[in-house]
């Protein structure tokens, strides 16, 4: 009965489209600015359409050299983000599973230590972590950044996973145990797939944080060849003059991969969640 397309649904559809147009307005500014040449971007109103739209900015930005090489920035961002998210999923899901299946004081303490970790002020840890990474020879490397982000976001990851893991039924695990499956294969074959909606949430949330992180990337990657996109954007922000057309071009480029990932993943995660709930 809810699947019929009634006049009320049409009204809802129209209202939603209008709301979406309002939500999209800032993107209009983003795109319009990226299509203007440098002089026009300075002189014209930000709302005005470009007089002669040009893709030159994309060419300029993509052909940058050395530290301004957006393609290598894109690669660095992808490597660091994917690496961190994979580590978080692997170690976070299993830790949350342990916590959910071994309640009691120890499990409770471990859980609380993760939750409090979400809140601790990382600003205070910057200098100690910087020194530690340098001593280990990992400063300015992809691996160093992946370790940093894994540690930084592990508490959030475990928090997200634990909520889901606690709600998972144990019937399948019990059945598999009776059939003689090992602990690790129970986790890999049965539990982890059931956790897929949480994996989706973790991947999107932590992926976004790492992908867009400016502050840590700046401090920990300054002077290295591993600069990520959010820091690279700043090579177009000057003391007195900012090339907004180029800045926004880089912003658009850095949006594309993560939006594509979301597009690819959204149905899966939502379905996955439904599957998880229905058992």
């Amino acid at each position: 009965m809810f699947n019929r397309y009634t006049p009320a649904t049409l009204v809802r559809e129209v209202v939603l489209v209008l709301v979406t147009v309002v939500i999209l307005f800032p993107f209009y500014l983003l795109v319009v600015m990226a299509l203007k040449d440098t002089k026009e971007s300075v002189v014209s109103s930000p709302v005005a359409l470009p007089s002669s739209p040009t893709l030159e900015n994309f060419a300029t930005v993509l052909s940058g050299e050395g530290r301004n090489n957006v393609l290598s920035g894109l690669m660095n961002s992808v490597i660091i983000t994917v690496g961190s998210v994979v580590m978080l999923i692997v170690f976070g899901s299993i830790a949350a599973y342990v916590i959910s299946r071994r309640p009691g004081r120890l499990g409770g303490a471990a859980y609380v230590s993760f939750v409090v970790g979400i809140i601790l002020p990382f600003q205070l840890a910057i200098i100690p972590v910087y020194v530690a990474l340098r001593v280990l020879g990992l400063l300015g490397t992809h691996i160093g950044m992946i370790i940093l982000y894994t540690g930084l976001l592990m508490p959030l990851t475990v928090f997200l996973y634990t909520g889901f893991a606690r709600a998972l039924p144990r019937d399948y695990e019990e059945a598999a145990a009776i059939d003689g499956a090992s602990k690790i294969s129970i986790f890999l074959r049965i539990v982890f797939p059931l956790l897929s909606p949480a994996t989706g949430t973790v991947a999107i949330l932590t992926g976004l944080i790492v992908w867009n992180d400016f502050f840590n990337a700046l401090i920990f990657l300054s002077g290295s060849k591993s600069t990520t996109l959010p820091v690279m954007v700043y090579s177009f922000v000057g003391e007195n003059v900012t090339a907004w057309n180029l800045v926004f071009t880089v912003v658009i480029i850095s949006m594309i991969p993560i939006l594509a990932f979301y597009l690819f993943a959204q149905k899966k995660f939502i379905q996955g969640f439904a599957g998880g709930m229905k058992g």
């Binding site: 910057i126 200098i127 910087y130 020194v131 340098r134 400063l139 700046l218 401090i219 300054s222 002077g223």
Partner: peptide, 13 residues
């Protein structure tokens, strides 16, 4: 901030 962190981390230019 970057300069100070690098100096204290022994990694400044």
């Amino acid at each position: 901030e970057v300069l100070r962190t690098q100096l204290q981390g022994g990694n400044a230019p």
